[in-house]
């Protein structure tokens, strides 16, 4: 079971978290101005890298913060877990 080092609560079991997928998906800042392709890409396209993956997890049974986790999706090794603001996202 993944052990996610929450910056607020310390290392906690994966079962306390809820997954949020690719952290590099950026919602168009002005959706109404976005063309159809841009909007649909935002809705449906994800990085699905086989290797390092930036992803969102929410610590729902903890601080309830959405966190940015760096994880290798082959080895499942977690390399980072930060507040979104800290990671500059």
């Amino acid at each position: 079971m993944l052990l996610i080092p929450c910056p607020h609560c310390g290392p906690r079991a994966q079962t306390e978290f809820s997954y949020g997928g690719d952290a590099n998906v950026a919602r168009p800042p002005a959706p109404e101005d976005a063309d159809g392709g841009t909007w649909v890409d935002y809705l449906y396209l994800r990085d699905n890298a086989k290797g390092g993956h930036d992803e969102l997890w929410q610590h729902i049974f903890g601080c309830r913060r959405w966190l940015r986790v760096g994880r290798d999706v082959v080895s499942h090794e977690i390399t980072s877990c930060t507040e979104l603001a800290e990671s500059g996202a």
Partner: peptide
Amino acid sequence: DGYNSFAQRGNLP
């Protein structure tokens, strides 16, 4: 399991 993975193994939960 509920998170991206290319490992053909999962976890206990």
